[in-house]
Amino acid sequence: MPTRHLLLIDPQNDFCDIHGASLPVAGAGADLHRLAALLRDEAADIAALTITLDTHRRLDIAHPGFWQKTDGGTVAPFTPITAAQLRAGEFRPRDAAALPRTQAYLEALEARGRYTLMVWPVHCELGSWGHNLHGELQTAAVAWQLERQRHAEFVLKGMNPWTEHYSALQAEVPDPADAGTQLNHALLQRLDDCDELWIAGQASSHCVKATVEDLVEHLPSRRLDKLVLIRDGMSPVTGFEPQAEDFLARMRAQGLRIATTRELSA
């Protein structure tokens, strides 16, 4: 029997399309319902469970409270901000002393070519309801731990307010002074220590995408065929559907398997 590890990326209330969520992803609630059922049904064959938690503070470089317009006006959620706009004074940090570091961050972010800074609604704030696991998945995770008599591993990401942290493996621009933003070799090794790594969560356009891209680049064994993306266990942020489809196509071309929860529990 192959050893299976289930990696669930950010299955949190704030990303679910449910009442009270601050950054709902259309379809996320149904995704997590299917994943909870998969975890219940396949508990005996899932040897390890890792759950990542997007974890932010109120003041964050990707939250509105960090920013203001030239006239001092508020910056609305879902506003992209480029290094050029910052240089031109179209936007600026509310804390004037933060300008040099912010400018350097945006330039480094854009040099990577993966994302432009996005001002998101405040989400997954530490200590809030939105930071918590989706209720049904939480219940399934507790049942798995009791049945298997082992802990699920929880990985917090995003605590550093100076960098976005989509990937569970490293921040978009790692901070040399903060080990929590740098490539997580211990997590990479744990995820590689299995025959099959099942991957799902939210969102396929951002945190799932970034995590899997980093896995493909850094997996110690280089055995990409062990990575299984659960297609009906992830959804894109509205407006980013093409990015999600491109991601899945690229991963399939690199040898990753794309499967559904029904196929995995067949």
Rank of each mutant, 00 (worst) to 15 (best):
N13Q: 15
G65D: 15
K69F: 11
L7A: 05
L23M: 13
R40H: 06
A43P: 10
A44W: 05
L49F: 14
H5T: 10
G27R: 05
H63S: 04
W67M: 13
D17G: 11
Q68N: 08
I51G: 13
L39R: 01
E42H: 10
D10T: 11
D41Q: 13
G27V: 00
S22M: 11
I51R: 04
L6H: 06
D71F: 10
H33Y: 00
H63D: 09
H56Y: 05
D14L: 00
L35Q: 11
L8F: 08
G29C: 01
D45T: 00
D60R: 00
D14K: 03
G65A: 15
E42D: 13
A28S: 07
D71N: 13
Q12E: 09
F66R: 09
A62V: 11
A48Q: 10
H56A: 07
P24K: 15
A26Y: 07
L8P: 08
T3A: 03
L23S: 02
H5I: 04
A43C: 12
A36V: 14
D10R: 01
A36W: 06
C16I: 06
C16V: 03
Q68K: 09
L39K: 00
H33W: 04
D31F: 05
P11H: 05
W67N: 10
H19D: 07
L38Y: 06
A48C: 12
P24W: 15
G65Q: 11
T52S: 15
S22K: 09
A47F: 03
A47R: 12
T52V: 13
P24T: 13
I9Q: 05
W67I: 11
G20H: 04
A37T: 02
H63I: 10
T50L: 06
T70W: 08
A47M: 05
I46P: 15
L23V: 06
A30E: 06
